[in-house]
Computed example of a mutant assay.
Amino acid sequence: MTDPTEEDVTMTFKEDPETVARTLRHALVGDDLPDSFTLLGREWSLHRGVWPSTLSAATEVLASMVPYPEGGSFLEVGCGTGVIAVTAALSGCTSVTALDINEKAIANTVANAERHGVSDRVRALHSDMYTALAPTDRFDTIFWNVPWTYVEDGYALSTDLHTAVFDPGYRGQARYLAGAHEHLADGGRLLLGTADLGDRERLDAVAEQTGLRVELLRSVRRIEEVRVMEYYMLELHPK
Rank of each mutant, 00 (worst) to 15 (best):
I106K: 00
T12M: 09
V146T: 15
D140C: 07
E7A: 13
V228P: 09
N102V: 04
D31Y: 05
P238I: 04
E103N: 11
T94P: 10
G30L: 04
T54G: 10
T141P: 05
Y176R: 07
L177H: 00
E182W: 05
E182N: 09
Y232C: 01
T54R: 13
V226D: 15
K14R: 13
A98S: 06
A124N: 05
E235I: 11
M229G: 00
C93G: 13
E43I: 14
E76N: 11
G211F: 03
T59S: 07
I101G: 00
R42V: 12
A180E: 02
P238N: 03
E103L: 05
R218M: 11
T54C: 13
A207S: 12
V86L: 00
H162E: 03
A174M: 03
E70V: 15
R171N: 10
P69D: 07
G179T: 09
S158R: 09
W44P: 04
V151L: 00
T97Q: 07
A205K: 12
M233K: 12
T87Q: 06
T23R: 12
D32Q: 07
L99G: 12
E43V: 15
A134H: 11
D186K: 09
F166H: 00
G198I: 07
R25H: 05
H183M: 04
S73R: 10
T159M: 06
E182Q: 15
V61Q: 04
V66I: 15
T23C: 05
R227K: 12
P135V: 01
M1N: 10
A107R: 11
Y176Q: 08
D32L: 03
V220M: 11
W144H: 08
G49L: 08
R115S: 03
V20Y: 01
A178C: 01
T94E: 15
R202P: 01
T109N: 02
R25E: 15
Q173P: 01
H26S: 08
I101A: 10
E70C: 07
E224Q: 12
I84M: 08
T141A: 12
V66L: 09
A124V: 06
G117D: 04
L203Y: 02
R200G: 03
S91M: 08
Y150E: 05
E230M: 03
